[in-house]
C-alpha cells in the first residue's frame, strides 16, 4: 500500500466529512437556537440536489445550478418554517420527530411528482474535471478538492457570522435566553426563519455539490441525514465547532474503515470471510464510535450547556 493511496483515501474521508459538516451545521444551529429536531433536513439536501441538477441540465451551467439549488433549498426551508416548523418549537421532541418525519414523506412524494421517478445526473464542471497531482505520485480529483475548499470556507464564514455579526449575536442570544432577546425588541420569529433558511441553504449547497458525484434521486437525503445526526451527537448538539471536528472524524473513520478494515482482517482470516467481516465492521464503525463517545461523554465531545 503506497503513501499516495493512503493520502487519497484520507482526502476522500475529509471530503465526506466536509460534506457532512454542511449538513450538520444547519441541524445543530436549528437545534441549538430553536431546540428543534429536524428529520426533514435530508429532504432539503435532496431539494438542493434536484434543483441543482435540473437547472444545470436546462441551462448547461453547473454554477447556475449550484446557485439555484442553494436558493431553492433556502426558499423551501423558509416556507416550511413558516407553515409548519414554527408551530413545533414549544412541543416535545417526540412531536417534532413525528411532524418532520411526515415532512420527509411529503417532500419525497412531491419530488417524485415534479422531477419524475428516474434519477437525474449532473456533470462535474469542466474547470474542475481534472486531477491535482499528489505528493508521492498519483492524482486527486480537483472537484473533490474543491468541495473540501468550499466546506472549509463555509466553516470559517459561519464562524465569522456567528462570532462577529449582528445576526450572529442575536443567534447566540437566542440560544441562551429566548424571552429576554424577545423583550429587547428583536423579532424572534423572523430570526428563527432566517436561521432555519440558512441551515436549509447549507444543506442545499451540500446536495448540489454531491449531485455531481452520485445520482440524484428521491431518498438520497436520508442516509446523509442519519450520518449528520451521528455527527452532531458526537460533536455535542448546538456546537458548530463540535460539528466540524466530529464531521471530519466521522468522514475519515467511515472512509478509512471501508478501505482498510477488510484488508486488516485479511491478515488473520481467509479472504472471503475477511471481506464480509471487514465490510460489516466498517459499516458499523461510525455507530460504534458514537456509542463509545456517548458512553463516556453523554453530551458529546463539545457539550454546549456544560
Amino acid at each position: 500500500m503506497s503513501a499516495a493511496f493512503f493520502i487519497e483515501q484520507l482526502l476522500n474521508g475529509v471530503q465526506l466529512g466536509v460534506m457532512l459538516f454542511l449538513m450538520a451545521a444547519g441541524l445543530t444551529l436549528v437545534f441549538g437556537v430553536m431546540g428543534l429536531i429536524n428529520l426533514a433536513h435530508g429532504s432539503l439536501f435532496m431539494v438542493g440536489a434536484f434543483f441543482c441538477s435540473w437547472i444545470a441540465g436546462q441551462t448547461g451551467s453547473f454554477w447556475l445550478g449550484l446557485g439555484g439549488g442553494f436558493l431553492a433549498a433556502a426558499a423551501a426551508g423558509a416556507l416550511v418554517e413558516v407553515l409548519v416548523i414554527r408551530r413545533l418549537y414549544d412541543r416535545d421532541h417526540l412531536d417534532q420527530v413525528l411532524a418532520t418525519f411526515a415532512l420527509i414523506l411529503i417532500f419525497s412524494e412531491l419530488a417524485r411528482w415534479v422531477f419524475g421517478d428516474r434519477p437525474l445526473y449532473l456533470d462535474i464542471p469542466p474547470v474542475l474535471s481534472g486531477a491535482v497531482p499528489l505528493p508521492g505520485g498519483g492524482g486527486y480529483p480537483a472537484y473533490r478538492l474543491a468541495i473540501i475548499g468550499v466546506g472549509l470556507v463555509t466553516a470559517v464564514g459561519l464562524y465569522l457570522l456567528i462570532a462577529r455579526t449582528r445576526l450572529g449575536m442575536q443567534i447566540r442570544a437566542g440560544e441562551s435566553d429566548r424571552e429576554m432577546i424577545g423583550a429587547l425588541g428583536v423579532d424572534i420569529r423572523t430570526l428563527y426563519t432566517a436561521v432555519f433558511a440558512l441551515g436549509a441553504a447549507l444543506a442545499g449547497l451540500a446536495g448540489g455539490m454531491v449531485g455531481a458525484l452520485q445520482s440524484v434521486q428521491v431518498g438520497m437525503g436520508e442516509p446523509v441525514l442519519i450520518l449528520a445526526f451521528v455527527v452532531i451527537i458526537i460533536g455535542g448538539i448546538g456546537s458548530v465547532k463540535g460539528a466540524l471536528v466530529s464531521a471530519v472524524l466521522v468522514g475519515v473513520t467511515d472512509t478509512l474503515g471501508r478501505v482498510f478494515l477488510p484488508q486488516l482482517f485479511g491478515l488473520i482470516l481467509p479472504p472471503s470471510e475477511a471481506t464480509s467481516v471487514g465490510a460489516s465492521l466498517s459499516a458499523m464503525s461510525i455507530y460504534l464510535l458514537m456509542a463509545g463517545v456517548l458512553a463516556f461523554k453523554p453530551k458529546g465531545l463539545f457539550p454546549v450547556d456544560a
Binding site: 411526515a102 411529503i106 412524494e109
Partner: peptide
C-alpha cells in the same frame, strides 16, 4: 405517502 404525510402532520 403524500396523503400519509399530510394526515400525520395534521394529527401532530
Amino acid at each position: 405517502q403524500l396523503v400519509l404525510g399530510l394526515v400525520l402532520l395534521s394529527v401532530v
